[in-house]
């Protein structure tokens, strides 16, 4: 009797664990199937054309894809230096008594839902951008900045964790040769934790590119590629969030599913690179 229960327990845990693989595969399959109509209709034009006209049944995702790329790039350019600065501050400069409270508040801020960053951006940041750069304040620039602020805590916390893996004794050796803090950070901490830092930054990139709510409020959802960053624009998640409930034809839906599939493939790839190339989990010994 005990043996039977033992077996049932073991097998049901395995079955549930495998469900994770099953759901992941299922998500890919369903998104692919739902995209088929759009793929057959538009082929490669779907990713190269920027004309997105639901009334004409014409869907080109170039503007949305470029929007994702540009807003994420902007966010990374703004957030990476600050995040590295925060990480250096937390791991090397801050007084012991400051490290814990500042570190924890940054982690807590990383836990605040992105919808709140978006709401803050809409009400408090859009007017500032409007006054400083002109335009209506809603657009690529605002989205990039809000996205940068939203990923900053996560990025800083993971970068700090990577830097903290540098053994104290290694740092002490460099100080013992007369190094300054910056000498030690530049020559010891960063080279030692390079892989971890790059992994942390790429992981943050993977999150940023799929982030929906922080940018949906402030992007504008206009399918147009413009070099004027103050103009309203769109990105893949913004298009999905705005149009899924509006779609009325099969082709419209299929095009949105293809967008979702493209987003999933992009972020899946980026996150995999971060996790498996740079942040290789310590295999259990």
């Amino acid at each position: 009797m005990t043996k039977i229960i033992d077996n049932i327990f073991a097998n049901s845990t395995r079955l549930i664990a495998i469900t994770v693989l099953f759901i992941t595969a299922w998500i890919f399959t369903v998104l692919f199937q739902e995209s088929l109509l759009s793929m057959q209709t538009f082929g490669i034009d779907f990713v190269t054309e920027s004309k997105w006209a639901p009334n004409l049944e014409k869907f080109g995702a170039f503007a949305a894809i470029m929007g994702s790329v540009i807003s994420t790039f902007l966010a990374m350019v703004l957030a990476v230096p600050v995040a590295i600065g925060v990480a250096i501050f937390l791991s090397e400069i801050a007084h012991e008594k400051l490290k814990a409270p500042v570190g924890v508040s940054i982690e807590l801020l990383a836990a605040i839902p992105s919808v709140i960053y978006g709401m803050w951006g809409l009400f408090y940041f859009v007017p500032i951008v409007r006054d400083l750069f002109g335009g209506i304040g809603i657009g690529m620039l605002t989205a990039g900045i809000v996205l940068a602020i939203m990923i900053l805590p996560f990025m800083a916390a993971v970068t700090r964790d990577a830097m903290n893996t540098t053994p104290d004794i290694l740092k002490e050796s460099a100080y013992a040769l007369g190094g300054t803090k910056w000498d030690v950070v530049r020559d010891i901490v960063i080279p030692y934790s390079k892989a971890g830092i790059i992994g942390a930054l790429i992981l943050a990139l993977g999150r940023a590119i799929g982030e929906t709510m922080a940018v949906t409020f402030v992007m504008g959802n206009v399918h147009k590629v413009s070099w004027d960053l103050t103009k309203p624009a769109t990105s893949i998640p913004v298009t999905l969030a705005n149009e899924f409930t509006e779609a009325d034809t099969d082709l419209y839906f299929s095009s949105l599913f293809e967008l979702a599939l493209i987003l999933l493939v992009i972020s899946f790839t980026i996150i995999s690179v971060a996790k498996f190339y740079f942040l290789r989990r310590k295999r259990r010994s």
């Binding site: 053994p167 002490e172 050796s173 460099a174 013992a176 020559d187 080279p191």
Partner: peptide, 10 residues
């Protein structure tokens, strides 16, 4: 100073 463990820099 020389430490308890070898501390070759990366």
């Amino acid at each position: 100073m020389i430490f308890q463990k070898p501390t070759a820099f990366p």
